[in-house]
């Protein structure tokens, strides 16, 4: 009975430490990781644009060998189109300024 209670307390402490660690991560390096992910996403978006830009009306002539990329690109096409064509304004950049208040 006592062992069971001790295990539960141990588990709770582990859980609390895990939550605290995640919160600290969110306050510190999460932004770095997110920034890197965003950079990669933007490069990918640009890559699809220069290879399959004709799908959104960009007057490019896709070279023959881009067809070899098609199987990899097809699953991302809808997401890419939305991401590329989504209307943006300056309020999109508000998250750039952290801790203003």
């Amino acid at each position: 009975m006592q062992t069971h209670a001790r295990e539960r307390i141990k588990e709770k402490i582990h859980h609390a430490a895990h939550v605290a660690g995640q919160i600290l991560y969110g306050m510190t390096v999460f932004d770095w990781k997110r920034g890197l992910r965003q950079q990669r996403g933007e490069i990918e978006r640009l890559f699809i644009l220069i290879t399959f830009g004709d799908l959104v009306g960009l007057p490019i002539l896709p070279p023959y060998y881009t067809l070899r990329l098609l199987p990899y690109t097809v699953p991302a096409i809808n997401r890419w189109k939305r991401s590329l064509l989504r209307e943006r304004d300056l309020t999109d950049l508000a998250e750039l300024i952290e801790g203003v208040d």
Binding site: Q22, I23, L24, Y25, G26, M27, F30, D31, E98, G99
Partner: peptide, 9 residues
């Protein structure tokens, strides 16, 4: 939890 930290910061 990560987002809470991010939002607070």
């Amino acid at each position: 939890n990560v987002l809470f930290g991010y939002q607070f910061k």
